[in-house]
């Protein structure tokens, strides 16, 4: 019998703990497919962060380090600088990357660290149960904005791609979405390109993946996908912010 669908080699054969309708699984898969297609798993070191994906090392088969909250880009820097021939990626959520880890991501990007950042933006803290994230949209409800995010009180959401694209260090920055098949295909290309940029030694690369958190959004999986498509993309436009013409 012909096998028409199987897990990427770079993913371990275990079931994941993520909630139904959560896009973490898809994001993992895209990373693993890139590692397979580029045949780099053996020299890849992944940095897990703090959040729902804290134990992504249980799913990725490559060597992994679990980093303190927000510090994954610094840990990745240490790895890459001590093993320049390795491929290093971080996998971080929005709370980790854009709140407690703002300093680390900005400076890793500014230095042009030759690492790849996979940034999961689902506009909320997942693991700690639905608090406001730096990416939470105005008027969005969360357990710490029970009356909605109000600009006067809570400030405005941070657009990470746009922010980092103002720096000279990054070689490639793209925002993609995991909301439907077409967009996932685009996201796959972006993730692969980000690794290729690193392999070519061109500099810092990051892909922001607009993701879901049905559990904390209080929506079912389908509604969640629709929210990404209908609402998130309005505030977080998809596209390449840095390195559009980059050939890899």
């Amino acid at each position: 019998m012909a096998i028409i669908f199987q897990k990427p080699k770079a993913l371990k054969d275990t079931s994941m703990h993520y909630c139904p309708g959560c896009t973490h699984g898809i994001a993992h898969r895209l990373v693993a497919e890139a590692l397979d297609e580029l045949e780099i798993e053996g020299r890849t070191i992944g940095i897990a962060s703090v959040g729902c994906s804290y134990n992504s090392y249980d799913y990725f088969g490559c060597d992994m380090i679990q980093a303190p909250h927000g510090r994954a880009p610094a840990v990745a820097t240490g790895v890459k600088r001590s093993k320049p021939d390795s491929i290093v990626f971080t996998y971080q959520g929005d709370g980790d990357l854009a709140a407690i880890g703002t300093g680390e991501i900005v400076h890793a990007a500014a230095r042009g660290e030759k690492i790849t950042v996979i940034f999961i933006n689902n506009t909320i803290y997942g693991m700690t149960s639905g608090q406001m994230a730096p990416t939470t949209l105005l008027n969005q409800y969360s357990t710490t904005t029970p009356y909605g995010r109000i600009a006067d009180l809570h400030g405005y959401p941070i657009k990470v791609c746009e922010l980092l694209a103002t720096l000279d260090g990054p070689a490639y920055i793209e925002r993609a979405s995991l909301a439907d098949v077409k967009q996932i295909k685009n996201a796959k290309k972006a993730v692969k390109k980000a690794f290729q940029v690193q392999m070519a030694g061109l500099g810092f690369s990051m892909v922001e993946l607009l993701s879901t958190c049905p559990t904390n959004w209080g929506l079912n999986p389908l509604e969640s996908m629709n929210r990404v498509k209908d609402e998130l993309v309005l505030h977080y436009p998809l596209g390449v912010f840095k390195g559009e013409s980059l050939e890899v």
Partner: peptide
């Protein structure tokens, strides 16, 4: 070798964590 001035003490110790994780003297 590599000398890197980190953006903060917090980042510096985490760079140490990363490099140390590869078995490098740091």
């Amino acid at each position: 070798g590599v000398f890197l001035q980190a953006e903060s003490e917090v980042a510096a110790i985490n760079m140490v964590y990363g490099a140390g994780s590869t078995g490098t003297r740091v």
